[in-house]
Nucleic acid binder design. Structure first.
Length: 258
DNA sequence: ATGACGGTGTGGCACCGA
């Protein structure tokens, strides 16, 4: 089973690249973030033509998420965190493979802008709500994957210049504590289950030739539940799409389960 | 290093992302 996540930074711009990537790397489930499309504009026909069922949840200008799956489409679909009032479209979840199947949660964590800001406070509240909800999901779905753009670099080795980024957004102690709390629910960072090349990032700033200089952060993640941990065969980041002519600033992250 | 890039929506720029 193959699963992937990609922050596409506008699906209107990146649809051809997503279809191209899926053609080269077929997935059983893929989640997208930052589609930036209202629901009436979602290109579901293009995904259906490529063999994918699509579920989507978007809004104007910002945010927006989608869940692409092979087959009949996911069960028990959820949009955003139950009980958490949110005007922003950031979460989509569904179960693939029928009853007792795999619970797939795609999430676009808030950026947070700057520690101490209103947006940072929203990020913290949002992460608390997510954690509490994922805990409940795990209780009913032991086979669970939480993946997406976390906007958190969990450790210094996930940052090209940890001194420069110390205490900055994505790297604050509060954000990292929240990431650890997710792991403590019984989830594992699939990327770190394997030997990985040093300086592995999933995002590079558009500015300052950051990609060419490999100055980036690893902020896109795939967390697998303890029940699935033994089934993880591979996890990696595909940098190639970042070399496209009009790339997203993020690269897709993928995992293979037996 | 955060002005630098890129997307959106608006309108001749501002806002936001990370």
């Amino acid at each position: 089973m193959r699963l992937a996540t990609w922050n596409v930074n506008s699906l209107a711009v990146r649809l051809p690249q997503v279809l191209e990537w899926l053609a080269a790397h077929p997935q059983d489930a893929m989640v997208l973030q930052e589609t930036k499309l209202t629901d009436d504009k979602f290109p579901h026909a293009e995904f259906e033509a490529a063999g994918y069922d699509a579920k989507w949840f978007g809004q104007r200008t910002y945010n927006g998420v989608a869940l692409l799956t092979r087959g009949d489409g996911p069960a028990d679909l959820l949009r955003n965190i139950p009980g958490f009032e949110d005007e922003q479209a950031r979460v989509i979840a569904g179960t693939v493979g029928g009853a007792g199947g795999l619970r797939v949660i795609g999430a676009y964590f808030p950026n947070g802008q700057e520690p101490g800001s209103d947006k940072f406070a929203y990020k913290l509240r949002w992460m608390e709500a997510l954690r509490d909800w994922v805990r409940a999901e795990l209780a009913t779905h032991p086979n669970l994957v939480l993946m997406g753009d976390f906007n958190i670099a969990p450790e210094d080795r996930d940052v090209y210049d940890p001194m420069l980024w110390a205490g900055q957004i994505h790297c604050t102690p509060e954000e990292r504590a929240h990431f650890r709390q997710l792991l403590e629910l019984g989830l594992a960072d699939a990327f770190r289950l394997f030997e990985q090349p040093p300086k592995s990032w999933s995002w590079w700033d558009y500015r300052n030739l950051a990609f060419r200089k490999n100055q980036g952060l690893r902020i896109d993640h795939i967390l697998v539940s303890d029940a699935l941990k033994g089934q993880v065969r591979a996890c990696g980041i595909d940098k190639l799409p970042r070399k496209n002519e009009r790339p997203s600033d993020h690269a897709p992250v993928f995992v293979e389960l037996t």
